[in-house]
Amino acid sequence: MAEPSTARTLTTEPRRTPPAPRSVGAYPLLAWTWMRAMAQYPVSLLLLTFGQAASTGLELTALFFVFGHAHQLAGFGINEALLIYGLAGVAFCLADFFMGSVERLGEHVRKGSFDTMLVRPVSPLVQLATDEFSPRRLGKVVPAVAALCYALAVLDIDWTPARILMLPVLIVSSIVICCCVWTLGASIQFFIADAREVANSVTYGGQAMTEYPLAIYGRSVVRTATFVVPLAFASWQPALFLLDRPDPTGLPEWLRYAAPGVALLMSLAATLAWRTGLRHYRSTGS
């Protein structure tokens, strides 16, 4: 090979067989890289985080205004309402933090950037979920956590060992359920690319709905939110469990223990929907 001596040559060591792709480890890695990139503009990040906190903070303010006029809604006072608001906020805001970016699937499909995700050896769902991952979304969780802690402190909750053990289980289940709702919303966009707003009506609409005691919407809404789109497990059922109150709409008490099972079922449904959507995308290329 008559290479000029200055030109670098490529090494000729034998080619390595690549290891099997692993998607799970890729999530924190991708998220961390994005966070580092976002942290390069600390002022912007701080302002945006503050803005996100303010957005849920204003909802909380509206809740106070509402309870200033009506001292009870469906038999729930302000402190109980704060518990429900806090539980819903923690579930939806953390799900938004972990999975919120998947709602932009339609946009990635239109721009063709989804194809670039498909040629990397990592699940496109993980790539999508971590896309532009930013700690600013945690801003939203702050008022919710504050409301939840306040409510847990002032409410007269009978802290049996079962309640202490169940609380984290219920919160984790509610976050999982909400993550699944986001994934289901994204999966629709494989079929209808412009359906993002429909997904929003379940995700952000679901959050708006579950921030108030579900009983105010009447029996049929409570039943739908329990058995069809199980958002009742985000705040309503856990709150009934903590407050040890019967369901005013007459649903059985065992439902409040069903959250982990519902989370599992929802995970299966979300996985199935995502796979079906992806298969559809790969057979139509659109």
Binding site: H69, L73, E197, G205
Partner: peptide, 19 residues
Amino acid sequence: TNSVFGVINAMVLLAVFDA
């Protein structure tokens, strides 16, 4: 989406005015 949000907000307010 606008209709869903409208229905949710309206039901909250109906509960308020109920009280």
